[in-house]
């Protein structure tokens, strides 16, 4: 699990071009869409959906579910653990 979270942090940094961040800067529970955390926006959210499909084979058909899943690296990792193929 902690391996997945570290991997996820690296993938987020790369995929979302978060050049100001390093893996060690991101805590598991940092809010993704808050200025206090990673300050992601709506396009990043869509890009995370692409990432889930591309890297983990998980198709998120209902974007409304995204809000709960994308709270933090922790919630994303939990979701991937449960659903990955």
């Amino acid at each position: 699990m902690s391996e997945l979270k570290e991997e996820l942090k690296a993938k987020l940094i790369e995929q979302l071009n978060l050049e100001d961040f390093e893996v060690s800067d991101i805590d598991d529970n940092d809010p993704l869409f808050d200025d206090e955390g990673l300050a992601l926006d709506s396009i990043d959210a869509l890009e995370i959906i692409v990432l889930l499909e591309k890297e983990y084979g998980i198709k998120l058909d209902d974007p409304k579910k995204g809000k709960d899943i994308m709270q933090s690296v922790q919630t994303l990792a939990d979701f991937i653990e449960k659903n990955r193929k």
């Binding site: 979302l16 396009i43 990043d44 869509l46 890009e47 692409v50 499909e53 591309k54």
Partner: peptide, 8 residues
């Protein structure tokens, strides 16, 4: 597009 289209 051939892979998964990127919104970003």
């Amino acid at each position: 597009i051939a892979d998964i289209p990127s919104p970003a």
